[in-house]
Design a protein around this nucleic acid. Sequence first.
DNA 1: TGCAATGTGTAGTATATAGTATACAGTACA
DNA 2: TGTACTGTATACTATATACTACACATTGCA
Lengths: 116, 116
Amino acid sequence: MSFGSHVRLSREARLKSDRSYSVRQVAARIGVEPSYLSKVERDEQPPPSEQKIRRLAEELDEDVDVLLAMAGKVSEDLRHTIIKRPQLFAEMIRELQDMPDHAVLRLVREVRDGDW
Amino acid sequence: MSFGSHVRLSREARLKSDRSYSVRQVAARIGVEPSYLSKVERDEQPPPSEQKIRRLAEELDEDVDVLLAMAGKVSEDLRHTIIKRPQLFAEMIRELQDMPDHAVLRLVREVRDGDW
DNA sequence: TGCAATGTGTAGTATATAGTATACAGTACA
DNA sequence: TGTACTGTATACTATATACTACACATTGCA
């Protein structure tokens, strides 16, 4: 699903039980004009900046990385981590790119718990 | 070191033994105007697009990921890998961000050799 | 029934990105 | 000594990004 449609559905789900989730009020809270958010939600405009997406993720209580991904973006902090050690992380990511989720997760767990 | 200075040094090192590494000729080979490459090398212009950086990396026989990193960029293919499974890779990268190189490398090796 | 709030259409803007085109002065060397 | 090549200065340009400002018709409800 597109970024816009997803946001619209997510916001409207909240709107059902909370009147403060109108386009106008959410727009105000994340710091954009209502007409802009309206257009973004209808995919008439491309997704907003990372900063606004972060605010939106908070509002809608969603995973920032997922929402950013839907917008075709990768979080700044991840980009910086990669840029600091480009060869290492490039190799790492390419190595893991075709691994099933469970294998990668097992690895993450090992790293977290392990004697690294 | 800045992207521009690095490219200049690298190109000039080659120029010493190969006349075809002039600003003009390299610019022609990577597909930009000489004046543009000149400005980029003197950091008077920001680094070029990923595509041009890739061509430059080939010309100078350098690691693309490193050159892209110097330009503040992350390779498209890595970005796509992350965007396909954002939660998984975000967690992975953040988990590894403070690990020493050798620990990460050990992981990569385990993945490559292992029964994943 | 009128005031407030709603979503959206239209038009415009500032800044960044990613360069091109042309001209010019200096150098190399045949 | 002239021509061919060098690096660079100056002036533009096209497209994308990331929005704002304002007006409008519609709906909710006190």
